[in-house]
Write a protein that binds this DNA or RNA. Structure first.
Lengths: 202, 202
DNA sequence: GTCTATATCATGATAGAC
DNA sequence: GTCTATCATGATATAGAC
């Protein structure tokens, strides 16, 4: 796909912005066109339908969500190091793309079967299986407390993702503005690592 | 709670079902009417606009999300007991209403200012302030490790909410069906309590 | 209160000039 | 490739009979 002009890229950037923020149902082709600095006619020239454009955006988004964790879980490093890497990389990813997790989780939920079948390869399932084994090994060595690896993985992801999905509510409850929220997020990197290590220590 | 089989209640039940599942943008008045066993004309007779109907549903949903935690944080009981109550009550609430957290967090995110101003009373802010004090007290007594009360509260909510928002992805990664997912959730009640206690112990 | 029919409008998509 | 103009559909909302 050797695309000539950069119009296609401008469209993809605009579509990502709008879809991530408003979801498939809330997004308007008109708004995407405006955001890209073109008109609807040209938008449909590049992507025949809203569905095809969405598909391109969603596919990239889902890939960005799962590729990192598959790779990290596969590494031959200690559990402690895996936690560090996952926290660092995903906090950074979601800081750059605050709407990414909500978008992916939402759209996945609307059409679970369709999307999952189309996009999920077996990588992440295999990576988790390997992770479960390495957790079991640490438990047997006595370096961490006994724990179901599924709950452990969910806990890590939960702690990382929630602030981005719950941001508006968080800012109200804590009475903080955008600047203070960013500070809270940056502190949270270290907090999550400490918290997980404390929970796991024998 | 014996549901009146009067028309207004049937509409509210149907609207809750559809709005919670598809959000404001994805919901169709036609579908709500069908779900309620009436037609669009009558639906508009009871609720003049889609906005008004949505407002009724969202208001109830947000209230169900925050009222419990405000009440629990206000109780004069130990931190340990508060954690127990929050985990028990919210896991039960979300088990009965699996789409509630996604719905509320999503819609809140789309119009943060508008909704927050209209619906949030100061209860939860005050409750959190009290919670922060009691956490500080436990830290000083040495019964728990030092921790930022904001992160602690976020951690509790994170661990509870995520499985419901991330359900489709979770089932794929762990390769489990609906029955096994329900079992995972029921185990998770105790897991979260143990995990939080382990992380907090001095 | 409840229904059918219809008005109004927004949006995805196409046609055709340049 | 890019634009303007237009179509076709579907959704909210209203009017009016019963």
């Amino acid at each position: 796909m050797v695309t000539d002009s950069n119009t296609e890229q401008k469209i993809l950037d605009a579509a990502e912005e709008v879809f991530h923020q408003k979801g498939y149902d809330g997004a308007r082709m008109q708004e995407i066109a405006e955001e890209a600095g073109i008109n609807k006619g040209l938008l449909h020239y590049y992507f025949k339908t809203k569905d095809k454009l969405f598909e391109a955006i969603f596919s990239m988004a889902l890939n960005r969500m799962v590729s990192k964790i598959s790779a990290i879980l596969d590494l031959d490093i200690s559990l402690d190091q895996k936690i560090d890497l996952i926290v660092e990389q995903y906090m950074a990813l979601f800081t750059r793309n605050p709407n990414l997790p909500r978008f992916v989780l939402n759209e996945l939920n609307k059409n679970p079967d369709e999307f999952i079948a189309r996009h999920f390869n077996g990588d992440i399932k295999r990576a988790f299986a390997g992770f479960a084994v390495s957790v079991q090994r640490e438990i047997e060595k006595g370096t961490i407390q006994p724990i179901d690896p599924r709950h452990l993985l969910m806990n890590m992801i939960s702690l990382i993702i929630f602030p981005f999905i719950g941001r508006p509510m968080i800012q109200v409850v804590f009475g903080i503005d955008n600047t203070e929220f960013k500070k809270l997020i940056s502190e949270r990197r270290e907090h999550i690592k400490r918290f997980l290590n404390a929970a796991l220590r024998p």
